[in-house]
């Protein structure tokens, strides 16, 4: 079970990461996260949209209404350049945190 704080902190990097692979819409983003994490990351669906709005206001992503194959129009989100930079920064931060955590978790060599 992932803690609430960690969940909150990771939402934005994960969204950025997903969008870095190409534009996507809200429902699909949630489904992809659920599938990849094997159900261990499960967002409450409605809450995604205020987060997306915030990110859009921060100019990390942009959005547009697109009708694919004549189906109903969907609200597609796309990552911006600022968003990519932010994603890189997030990745390196997470990397450092993970490295540090891993380092201290490995068995220690005892000097004679």
């Amino acid at each position: 079970m992932i803690s609430k704080t960690l969940m909150a902190a990771s939402t934005r990097p994960i969204i950025l990461a997903i969008l870095s692979r190409g534009k996507d819409y809200g429902y699909n983003i949630i489904q992809r996260v659920k599938n990849i994490s094997g159900g261990s990351i499960e967002w409450s669906d409605g809450m995604l949209y205020p987060v997306m709005q915030r990110m859009e206001l921060d100019r990390l992503i942009s959005s547009e209404w697109i009708s694919v194959d004549g189906g109903r129009p969907r609200h597609y989100y796309r990552i911006t350049d600022d968003g990519r930079q932010a994603l890189e920064a997030e990745l390196s931060s997470w990397q450092k945190i993970l490295n540090t955590m891993i380092h201290f978790s490995q068995p220690q060599l005892v000097k004679e």
């Binding site: 819409y25 809200g26 429902y27 699909n28 489904q31 949209y49 709005q53 969907r74 609200h75």
Partner: peptide, 16 residues
Amino acid sequence: GLVVDMELHLRDAFAS
């Protein structure tokens, strides 16, 4: 438009 986001999401979830 924000309620439309909600509605579309609901319809997608319902469909699946």
